Amino acid sequence: MRFFQICFMVLCLCACQPKEYTLHLVGDSTMADKENPEFNPEFGWGQVLPEFFDGNVTIVNHAKNGRSTKSFIEEGRWQQVMDDLNAGDYVFIQFGHNDQKTNKPERYTNAYSSYRANLEKMITEVKAADATPIIFSSIVRRNFNGSGVLEDTHGAYPFVARTIAKEMNVPFIDLQVSSEKLVNELGDEPSKALYLWVPADTNDYFPKGKQDNTHFSKQGAQAMCQLALDEMKKYRFNFLNHLKK
């Protein structure tokens, strides 16, 4: 009888222990960790993601500046993700900014062929490892024209990512749409605060200043991260139970 009581107590203790989750982030500079964060005003949204979770969620940020699906795979970075992956993990996949660069053959992929094939490869391999892939569209560039209209810069890539996610039955987080809405609501001038707009002689990291409509300030990274989390809540992922209140 004593043996069964001990077994029951052990089972109860195990059941009460919060489940731990690992999120692997795969993408480009808009997601990546930046060097010298105590001085560098540039942040990726994946860099600030750990701030939103308690200690039961581990975030492994594999994202790197300047990478496309092609270069990420060819440099062996994707294989490293797969080597680190365990059953039950999640993989956030966000590419497009660099896949579209036709002047950089080491990065460029055609949206309808090689970009599509690379995303399909990633999804298939993550599923085969009993992990969960989540596809993200790219975040909008702050690209207002002379009439104050925010123009698209990503072409077919978000559409292809959305299509693949639907066809392969994986979650799709449309940051292209949600970030475009946010930037439009703020407008041309106020939206600069979300991006890497640094006046000259105000920051030692960029003493000459910086006008960058692709990458984010810490405020911008936090805002984009919140958009991602809001979109993910639609899927009710279990790891979201560990968001800080």
Rank of each mutant, 00 (worst) to 15 (best):
F3L: 14
F4N: 11
F8R: 07
V10I: 15
V10H: 02
L11T: 04
A15V: 10
Q17G: 04
P18N: 04
K19C: 07
E20T: 15
Y21D: 05
Y21I: 05
T22G: 06
H24S: 06
H24N: 04
L25G: 05
V26D: 02
S29R: 00
N36K: 13
P41C: 01
E42L: 08
F43Y: 15
V48Y: 02
L49K: 02
P50I: 09
F52E: 11
T58N: 10
N61C: 04
A63S: 11
N65E: 11
T69K: 00
K70F: 09
I73M: 07
I73Y: 15
E74Q: 15
E74Y: 10
E75Y: 12
M82P: 12
L85K: 01
N86Q: 14
V91K: 03
I93L: 08
Q94V: 07
H97A: 00
H97R: 01
D99V: 05
Q100M: 12
Q100V: 11
K101S: 11
T102W: 10
N103F: 15
K104L: 09
R107Y: 11
T109C: 13
Y112F: 13
S113A: 12
S113D: 14
L119N: 08
K121E: 12
I123P: 03
K127F: 06
A128N: 11
P133Y: 01
P133F: 02
F136S: 07
V140F: 12
R142K: 02
R142C: 06
N143I: 09
G146H: 07
V149K: 05
L150D: 05
G155A: 00
A156C: 09
P158M: 02
F159S: 09
V160D: 01
A161F: 06
R162S: 15
T163K: 11
I164N: 01
P171Q: 00
F172R: 01
S179L: 05
V183Q: 01
V183F: 07
L186V: 06
L186F: 07
D188F: 10
D188Q: 14
P190I: 07
S191W: 10
K192T: 10
L194T: 03
L194H: 00
L194Y: 08
Y195K: 03
P199C: 03
P199R: 02
D201M: 08
Y205K: 04
F206R: 05
K210N: 14
Q211P: 12
N213F: 12
T214L: 13
G220W: 06
M224S: 07
Q226K: 14
Q226G: 13
L229Y: 01
D230A: 08
E231R: 09
E231A: 13
M232I: 11
F239D: 00
L240P: 10
K244C: 06
K245C: 11
K245S: 14
